[in-house]
């Protein structure tokens, strides 16, 4: 089953290509500014991508190497997604410190190491970006 990774990829490419072609054909152009219009190019590119997908479906695939560790990656990805949603309400320093904490733990830091890392990294970045480089970052309820 694991050696089927390329077949799955090929199938996904074909499905994606079909979706794009269908979408391109559904575009309604009010006026014709040029003889090509917005449909032709995405259609051709999607067909090329679909052809690559079919070629991949036809051959035995790459083996999907099992990860040595799964949990850290998932935790990091979840923390990143949460960061996107929490940045504005929590403010840059708090949100970044939480993100750094999770990433440091994911890289096998001890709790103490991770806490120190996040408490140093987040304020340092804020100082550099907000104060020195003057790029406004979102301030949280505490004002930073």
């Amino acid at each position: 089953m694991r050696a089927q990774a390329d077949r799955v990829l090929g199938g996904a490419l074909v499905a994606l290509a079909a979706g794009v072609v269908w979408h391109a054909q559904s575009l309604e152009v009010a006026f014709a500014a040029d003889p090509v219009g917005p449909k032709a190019f995405p259609t051709v590119v999607a067909l090329a991508m679909g052809a690559c997908g079919i070629l991949l479906l036809l051959r035995a695939g790459t083996v999907w190497e099992k990860a040595e560790r799964v949990l850290p990656g998932l935790a990091a990805a979840a923390a990143m997604a949460a960061y996107a949603l929490l940045l504005a309400p929590l403010g840059f320093i708090t949100a970044s410190a939480l993100l750094c904490l999770v990433i440091a733990l994911a890289f096998s830091a001890t709790i103490l190491q991770a806490v120190v890392t996040s408490l140093v990294t987040a304020p340092l970045l804020w100082l550099l970006l907000d104060r020195v480089l003057d790029l406004p970052l979102p301030a949280g309820p505490l004002g930073f």
């Binding site: 949603l85 750094c100 440091a104 890289f107």
Partner: peptide, 26 residues
Amino acid sequence: WVLYPGVIALSYAGVYAVSNSPFDLL
């Protein structure tokens, strides 16, 4: 564990600095 938390935080700060949009972070 010292290096990569900083890399990630800097990545997101960079994305935010260009667009100010949480959607782009996602």
